[in-house]
């Protein structure tokens, strides 16, 4: 029986699929880096807690950020305690299982955290979750 030996030309390096893969990877990392910019704005130092868990469900959350100088940020805008209370009250009307995700700087004094928690509790927020990194090292 005569076997057909493939020609050596077939062994050549295929550029097209490699470029496809590289473009796919590039799009993925472009999207990932964009998310990074969105989450890190404004820049604060989140505390570290090894037993914190990565959440699976992110719905029904409202984010409150407190910088180390005590500035409260609600939806990217600076807010006062009464404004926070009003915003949470309004959100609680539309979201029954409202969760407050508190992103407080690790150097922040507890007094400010307590004031915000008090405002949330007064506004009827049922759950408060603290943001934390699982480890210090990147």
């Amino acid at each position: 029986m005569k076997l057909k030996v493939p020609s050596m030309e077939d062994v050549g390096f295929q550029m097209a699929p490699m470029i496809d893969c590289v473009f796919q990877l590039m799009i993925f990392f472009m999207c990932a880096s964009h998310l990074h910019q969105t989450l890190d704005n404004p820049k604060i130092e989140i505390p570290v807690a090894a037993n914190a868990s990565i959440p699976e469900e992110l719905s029904d959350r409202r984010y409150i950020t407190i910088k180390d100088d005590g500035t409260i940020l609600l939806g990217g805008n600076t807010a006062t305690i009464p404004q926070v209370k009003t915003a949470i009250e309004q959100a609680a009307k539309t979201i029954p299982n409202l969760k407050i995700f508190l992103r407080a700087d690790k150097r922040l004094k507890h007094k400010k955290v307590r004031e915000v928690m008090q405002a949330c509790a007064d506004a009827g927020a049922s759950e408060i979750i603290f943001a934390a990194y699982q480890s210090e090292a990147r």
Binding site: V22, F29, H36, L39, I46, N51, R103, M117, I128, F130
Partner: peptide, 27 residues
């Protein structure tokens, strides 16, 4: 393309996921 890929890989690896502490407060 490789230069861009390396840039975005490095930029993306800087991101740390924020976790929940696993404690929910009733207020």
């Amino acid at each position: 393309v490789f230069q861009l890929l390396i840039y975005f890989m490095v930029a993306a690896s800087l991101h740390k996921t924020e976790a929940d502490l696993g404690i929910s407060l009733p207020g």
